[in-house]
Design a protein around this nucleic acid. Sequence first.
DNA 1: GACATTGTCGCAGAGTATGATACAATAGCC
DNA 2: GGCTATTGTATCATACTCTGCGACAATGTC
Lengths: 129, 129
Amino acid sequence: MLTISLASPVPIHDQLVAGLRGLIAAGQLAEGDELPPVRQLAADLGINLNTVARAYRELTDAGLLASARGRGTIVIATVERASGPKAEERKRIEASIAAALGDAKLAGLTREAAESMAARQIERLWKHV
Amino acid sequence: MLTISLASPVPIHDQLVAGLRGLIAAGQLAEGDELPPVRQLAADLGINLNTVARAYRELTDAGLLASARGRGTIVIATVERASGPKAEERKRIEASIAAALGDAKLAGLTREAAESMAARQIERLWKHV
DNA sequence: GACATTGTCGCAGAGTATGATACAATAGCC
DNA sequence: GGCTATTGTATCATACTCTGCGACAATGTC
């Protein structure tokens, strides 16, 4: 369900956060779903439990998860929000999209290939809405 | 032409690399163009010259720039490549696009807003081709 | 040849990521 | 009610990375 790369320059807990956010955004993790205990997920991935705990905590702080000792961690994301993001956040988001697509172009992707990639991801992400 | 955020968790040199790649990918920096000296760009951005030098070096290693003592740094990118990227790289690229769009959805963006953002960036990036 | 310009190298301090270990709170069972 | 297992949290140590300061090396200009 989740894969991480120990060789990647991006921190493991960031990879976890991104992966979990992706699962939640795509609807594969819905509100109320339980996440594996930190020890189990850490063992499955071959990393330290603190690293998993940190990812859970960051998502908890972001309001996507809820954790409690002895009870575990569940998804409390309410993806649908009344109003869209603020202008500042929109700018940040568009910058990250621009960076990803800019990378794609530098890698030699054609415009058509990039369009199809973006379309496929949008389709996948908003499918469950 | 370039903006960086000292408060951001992503390293300054990575921001520079991403920004420069973006400018090159968008065609605002073309083959043969000279980049500002490391000291000047560092002063403009309020950072250390080594940080700029590192960004230049990484892009040099990536084959986008060429540096020489006393002469400066120029763009040698040849964006158009004979064959598209390998499957592995395509996978990495699509993952970064998916992450950016997943973030967009979690932030509350509608599907239509995401589509328009992606389309606008693709238009901007591939305009000069 | 002297000087300015430009990129590069070595080192140090600060901060961060990751991990080992111990602690605290909840649930389940007798 | 008490014991045990389960689960998240806190503390500390180690290694690594980022950033910056200073010095060096190569090129261009006069």
